[in-house]
């Protein structure tokens, strides 16, 4: 089970669009159940466990995050935030067609806005993708912030 470069790149653009359009249920369906969404705190961090990260979310946490965004008493989302991912063309760094496993690196601008505030983050997303039953899925995703060592306000959606 393999995927062509065009299929992989289309997948990454489609994933970003789901987040921008708040199609969270569709987005969650892209994930393999044992995957982790990791946003390290430190520049070039290697360990998600024994030092702090921004996010190291398993499927339960991701589901909780998405449910919360839709909740009636989610005060920090009254009004709701909106986001926009502006992608560079992804690099396919590793491709194992036989196993259907791919690693991609995508640089992007991430914008998030709510009320009068808008934030712009430089982001590098590294995806581990797997082709399962003919469909591309997210096995793991790592999102590095260019200014990871800065002091941030709330970042409420998913870069």
């Amino acid at each position: 089970m393999s995927a062509t470069p065009d299929q992989i790149i289309d997948f990454l653009y489609a994933e970003a669009r789901m987040l921008d359009e708040a199609l969270y249920a569709d987005w969650l369906d892209l994930w393999l159940p044992d995957g982790h969404y990791w946003m390290p705190l430190d520049f070039k961090q290697t360990d998600p466990h024994l030092v702090t990260s921004f996010l190291y979310e398993d499927f339960f946490m991701l589901k909780l995050r998405i449910e919360r965004l839709n909740g009636a008493r989610t005060f920090s989302q009254k009004p709701k935030s909106r986001c926009l991912h502006v992608l560079n063309r992804p690099f396919i760094d590793d491709a194992d067609d036989a196993a259907g496993r791919y690693k991609t690196v995508t640089a992007m601008h991430y914008l998030e806005t709510r009320l009068d505030d808008q934030m712009l983050l430089g982001v590098t997303a590294t995806h581990d993708l797997a082709v399962v039953d003919g469909a591309i899925r997210i096995a793991n995703k790592r999102v590095d912030l260019l200014n990871c060592d800065a002091a941030f306000p709330n970042i409420q959606l998913l870069p």
Partner: peptide
């Protein structure tokens, strides 16, 4: 990270 990060669902509120 779950409670105090800028990305924390708890911290947001």
């Amino acid at each position: 990270r779950m409670i105090n990060a800028s990305t924390s669902m708890v911290g947001h509120d």
